[in-house]
Simulated assay, not measured.
Amino acid sequence: MTDPVKSLPGLAVGPAGSRRVLRALPEEVPVAMVFDGSTLAVMMATPSDIEDFAMGFALTEGVIENLDQVESFEAVEQPNGIEARFWLAADRSDALKARRRAMAGPVGCGLCGIDSLDQATRALPRVSGDIRLSREDVATATDALRAHQPLHDRTHASHAAGFLRPGEGIVAAREDVGRHNALDKLIGALARAGEDPATGAFVLTSRVSVEMVQKTALAGCPVLVAVSAPTAHALRLAEGAQITLAAFARDGAFDLYSHPHRIRTGATDVA
């Protein structure tokens, strides 16, 4: 596959003058999600962990309900991008037609290509996971994720999504230039490894927008921890899906917004 990092020249300009530099930059390529010979979506993504990305995308878009419904898969590099080719079990053909869409848009646009407002506000399943996290688990989650970001270390231009297991820390992580792609990659990696998202928390290096909550709910993960803020609508969705949402998780602290019973804070309110 294409190298996910390219070293390219530039000119660094500062108060003392300028100098030539060689910077490691993340690559970004079109990835076509092809189901039974027909392209459903084209996403701009980092060309790494493509099978994880494709499987996570198929799960969170409702094309499949589990990996047993994929009869075969291959990632094929083309001159202008990558094709993620699925062949599905026959019983998924109707579901595929119902989800049919062509989606091509910039990184960060998690709802590009939908054809109705109903799709943007689709009903989410209620997540019933009964895990318990300690205050320390959540407060140190994003700092712990930093140790699993080699692409960011090289480029300073990528997002990550990690899976936090109570008392164990980050046990899996994936990176991409797109925050929602990183989460799809993580969800796909967990599915391929037979890991149940209900046994831990998703940890994000980004803000929490609507599609991040949607993907978390559809994956069945009960806790979402992010380094930045949620949008107001994302918070409403998390509340309705019974997801515990912790945001601004950094420097040993966090804000807790919805379904706090899964986190043992050990603290009392202060005025």
Rank of each mutant, 00 (worst) to 15 (best):
115 D>G: 14
99 R>Y: 09
91 D>L: 10
90 A>H: 03
120 A>V: 14
94 D>F: 08
112 C>G: 01
112 C>P: 01
116 S>N: 07
110 G>T: 00
93 S>E: 12
98 A>W: 01
123 A>T: 15
114 I>K: 02
100 R>I: 15
122 R>N: 11
88 L>Q: 02
90 A>C: 02
92 R>P: 01
117 L>P: 13
91 D>Y: 09
105 G>C: 05
100 R>W: 14
114 I>S: 06
123 A>L: 14
118 D>H: 11
115 D>K: 05
100 R>H: 08
115 D>R: 11
97 K>W: 03
113 G>R: 02
103 M>Y: 08
99 R>G: 12
98 A>G: 01
121 T>V: 14
108 G>N: 05
106 P>S: 08
88 L>H: 10
107 V>S: 11
109 C>I: 04
94 D>V: 03
90 A>D: 04
122 R>Q: 12
112 C>T: 02
91 D>P: 10
108 G>L: 04
95 A>S: 02
118 D>A: 15
118 D>W: 09
88 L>Y: 04
100 R>C: 12
98 A>C: 01
103 M>N: 07
95 A>Q: 10
102 A>Y: 03
120 A>E: 13
119 Q>P: 06
90 A>N: 04
119 Q>V: 05
122 R>M: 10
89 A>T: 09
90 A>P: 05
96 L>S: 08
93 S>R: 15
111 L>M: 12
122 R>I: 06
122 R>H: 13
112 C>S: 00
95 A>H: 07
98 A>N: 01
96 L>M: 14
110 G>L: 02
117 L>C: 04
103 M>I: 02
88 L>M: 07
94 D>S: 03
116 S>C: 04
97 K>T: 05
91 D>W: 05
121 T>R: 14
119 Q>A: 06
105 G>K: 10
106 P>G: 08
97 K>S: 02
91 D>F: 06
117 L>W: 12
122 R>F: 10
100 R>K: 07
120 A>W: 13
93 S>V: 07
100 R>L: 10
108 G>W: 11
92 R>Y: 10
113 G>W: 03
98 A>P: 01
105 G>S: 13
116 S>Y: 09
116 S>T: 12
115 D>Q: 12
107 V>A: 09
89 A>G: 06
101 R>L: 10
123 A>Y: 11
118 D>P: 08
99 R>K: 06
106 P>K: 04
108 G>K: 05
98 A>L: 03
100 R>N: 09
90 A>R: 01
112 C>W: 02
94 D>A: 04
105 G>N: 12
114 I>C: 07
106 P>T: 09
103 M>W: 05
97 K>D: 04
97 K>L: 07
117 L>R: 14
123 A>R: 15
93 S>Y: 04
107 V>R: 05
91 D>M: 06
107 V>F: 05
108 G>P: 09
89 A>L: 06
103 M>L: 05
107 V>Y: 07
104 A>I: 08
120 A>D: 09
108 G>F: 11
112 C>I: 00
91 D>N: 14
111 L>T: 15
120 A>G: 14
123 A>S: 15
101 R>T: 08
113 G>V: 00
106 P>H: 12
112 C>D: 00
96 L>D: 11
124 L>N: 04
118 D>K: 13
105 G>V: 05
88 L>P: 06
92 R>E: 04
109 C>F: 07
101 R>Q: 12
